[in-house]
Simulated assay, not measured.
Amino acid sequence: MLEVIQVLTVVIVGVMVGVEFSVAFVVNPILNALPGDGGQLGRAHGGRMLGAVMPVWYITSLVLVAIWAVAGWRNQGTGLTVTAGALLIVSVVMSVLLLVPINNRGKTWTPENRPADWKQQMNRWDRFHYVRVAVIIAAFALLVAAA
């Protein structure tokens, strides 16, 4: 049973890391290079779409890591699993305190109602997101090592 939890957790966290990495280093740079209002409209749509999915994904990942840590408490690698869980908690706290407020504003913007500093706000979101991606990559690496 523990092996099933480990594989499921590594796959779910790994795909989440891939999506977040892609947003940071592929999708947003593409959107930022679009002419006119396309980039801002794309980011607003992405904020609505991923803003609905990612909270469930992050919490599910954290719950699976907690189950893994409890189920394998006496096994080798538990320290790595617990540390990965702590990093995922950091990523959730970062998300709630730093990224979600910006995303909640940005997902409602249109070319007609966006603030004058919308690009600066998106750049700030990107910088926080880079840090979050580094944190979840570290958590993923620890989970792989623990498995």
Rank of each mutant, 00 (worst) to 15 (best):
M54W: 10
A44E: 10
D37E: 14
W57E: 08
M54F: 15
S61I: 07
R74K: 10
A71F: 06
G47N: 15
G42C: 06
V56Q: 03
N75T: 09
P35K: 01
M54P: 05
V70W: 01
I59C: 04
V70K: 00
I59K: 09
G39D: 08
P55C: 05
V63Q: 03
G47E: 10
M54I: 15
S61K: 04
T60S: 12
L34P: 03
P55A: 03
V53E: 07
W57I: 13
G36P: 00
S61G: 15
G38S: 02
V56P: 00
L62T: 08
A66M: 08
W57A: 14
H45M: 14
V70Q: 01
V56S: 03
G36E: 00
T60H: 03
A66Y: 02
G42M: 09
W68M: 08
G39V: 12
V63H: 01
L50Q: 11
L41Q: 14
L50Y: 12
R74F: 11
R43M: 13
R43N: 12
V56C: 06
V65M: 15
N75G: 07
A66L: 14
G38A: 10
G72V: 04
H45C: 05
L41C: 05
L64C: 01
G42D: 05
Y58W: 14
L62G: 06
A71G: 08
A71I: 04
A69D: 07
A66T: 13
L64M: 04
N75P: 01
G72N: 05
V53C: 09
A44K: 12
P55K: 06
G51W: 13
R43G: 10
L41D: 11
P55I: 00
H45E: 15
I67M: 14
L62C: 06
Q40M: 13
G42T: 02
W68F: 06
M49E: 05
G42S: 12
G38K: 00
L64S: 01
S61F: 06
A52I: 05
W57F: 12
N75Y: 13
T60F: 12
A52Q: 09
G46E: 10
A33C: 01
G46I: 12
W73C: 01
H45W: 13
A33P: 00
T60E: 03
Y58T: 05
Y58E: 09
V56R: 08
V53M: 15
I67F: 13
V65G: 01
P35G: 03
M49L: 15
T60N: 04
P55H: 08
G51P: 09
G46Q: 06
